[in-house]
Design a binder for these strands. Structure first.
Length: 226
DNA sequence: GCCCAGGTGGGTA
DNA sequence: TACCCACATGGG
C-alpha cells in the first residue's frame, strides 16, 4: 500500500526484491558474440523468439560468416530471414550495419565498445540504421557486459503499471529513467525478471492475475479495483 | 479472422 | 517534440 506515494527508487528496490523471490536470480545465459547478438536482436524486432531463431539459423546455414552476409546478395539475405517478418527492412539493415561497422572500424568487430563509456557506445550503436535504443542496450548488456538497461514492450508496460515511470513516458525515455532507478549490477536480473513477469504473469491479456507478487504496488491494479 | 510477439525510421503537425 | 504509421511472419 501507499505504492503511489513511495519513491520510485524505493519501489524499484522492492520490485527487484519481490521478483528475485518469485523467479530467483536469472542464469547468465551463454551469450552470443556482439556481432551475432546485434544481428539476432535486429531479427527479433517485433517478432517472437521462435521466428527470430528460425531466421537466425537459416542465415547461418546459408552464409558461412558475417562477412559473407555483409557482402552477399541482399535478396538472398532477405529470403533467409523471411520467417522473422519485416525481412525487406531487416535484410538491408543487417547488411548496412555490418558495412557500417567495417567502414568505421576496419573490421567486423564490436569488442572495442566494452572500453567505451556506456553513453558513447549507445550513441554510436544507435547511429546505425535499424539499431534503436533497445537493440543497442541488448548488445551492450548481453554481449559486452556493459551496464545498459534495455526497455522492450514488456518492461515498458509493466514499469508504467507499477508507476516506476510516468504513464506517458515513452519507451525511449524509459531507458534513462529506469537506469537511474536501479543499481547497474541489477540491470541484468531486473530486466530478465521484469520480462518474465510481463510474459508469464502480468501479460497484456491478463494484466493482474491473482498470483501477482506486485499487486499492491501496481497503479493499474489500484485503478481498476477502486 | 484476430491479436500478439523482447522495434525502428520516416512522415506530419 | 510528440504522436502516427508501415513494415510481415507464425502461433494461439
Amino acid at each position: 500500500m501507499g505504492g503511489d506515494t513511495m519513491a520510485p527508487e524505493k519501489k524499484a528496490e522492492l520490485v527487484q526484491k519481490r521478483l528475485l523471490e518469485a523467479f530467483g536470480e536469472p542464469q547468465w545465459r551463454p551469450h552470443l558474440d556482439p556481432i551475432s547478438e546485434l544481428v539476432s536482436t535486429i531479427l527479433s524486432q517485433n517478432t517472437n523468439d521462435t521466428n527470430r531463431d528460425t531466421a537466425f539459423d537459416r542465415l547461418r546455414d546459408r552464409f558461412s560468416s558475417w562477412e559473407e552476409v555483409r557482402d552477399g546478395d541482399v535478396d538472398e539475405v532477405i529470403d533467409a530471414i523471411r520467417p522473422a517478418g519485416l525481412a525487406n527492412q531487416k535484410g538491408p539493415r543487417i547488411q548496412g550495419a555490418l558495412h557500417f561497422i567495417t567502414q568505421e572500424r576496419g573490421e567486423l568487430d564490436l569488442e572495442f565498445l566494452a572500453d567505451w563509456p556506456v553513453d558513447k557506445s549507445k550513441a554510436w550503436l544507435s547511429s546505425i540504421k535499424g539499431v534503436g535504443p533497445k537493440t543497442a542496450a541488448i548488445v551492450l548488456l548481453f554481449a559486452l557486459g556493459t551496464p545498459a538497461f534495455p526497455v522492450d514492450t514488456h518492461v515498458h508496460r509493466v514499469a508504467k503499471r507499477l508507476g516506476l515511470i510516468g504513464s506517458k513516458t515513452s519507451r525511449e525515455k524509459a531507458h534513462d529513467e529506469l537506469e537511474g532507478l536501479i543499481p547497474p549490477e541489477d540491470y541484468y536480473s531486473f530486466h530478465l525478471n521484469l520480462i518474465r513477469h510481463g510474459r508469464e504473469v502480468c501479460t497484456s491479456r491478463s494484466p493482474h492475475c491473482e498470483e501477482c507478487v506486485l499487486r499492491d504496488l501496481c497503479d493499474y491494479y489500484r485503478k481498476i479495483s477502486s
